[in-house]
């Protein structure tokens, strides 16, 4: 029973991994790719690890899988945040079909005010 449930979780995780990497190819700019890939691949890998925990049970490998789930779901958003911030600050523009960019407007004002004050 637990084997079947665990294999089901692994199958769901594989499907979401595949969708995430497909998004990495199809979407147009860095931010959209980051969004699709981070969400889908994190949830997919966490689902695979949970399936591994269900199959192996409470042995050392299963406990390590649970720890790895906590660790991944804490660190991946931080990494995505760092990459998005670095990409925007290094001047990579948004996709041409983007609707609005408040961040660039505010950064522009900041730079101008620091120029006038110095």
């Amino acid at each position: 029973m637990m084997h079947t449930l665990g294999l089901g979780f692994i199958a769901v995780g594989l499907a979401f991994d595949l969708f995430g990497c497909l998004g990495l190819i199809r979407l147009p700019d860095v931010y959209n790719r980051l969004q699709a890939a981070t969400k889908c691949v994190t949830m997919g890998t966490c689902s695979i690890l949970f399936g591994a925990f269900l199959v192996t049970g409470f042995v050392s490998a299963g406990i390590k899988a649970l720890l790895c789930i906590v660790f991944l779901s804490l660190t991946t958003p931080v990494a995505a945040h760092a990459i998005a911030r670095g990409a925007h600050r290094s001047g990579i523009a948004l996709w041409s079909g983007s609707v609005v960019d408040h961040y660039a407007d505010d950064r522009q004002e900041e730079v101008e005010s620091s120029k006038t004050s110095s």
Partner: peptide, 25 residues
């Protein structure tokens, strides 16, 4: 998280890519 994944998967496999991205405050 579950809703987010289904949403992203729907957007990715849609032929027309229904996205209107932007950065808001």
């Amino acid at each position: 998280v579950l809703k987010a994944n289904i949403d992203v998967a729907r957007r990715v496999i849609h032929p027309n890519l229904p996205i209107h991205p932007g950065i808001v405050k």
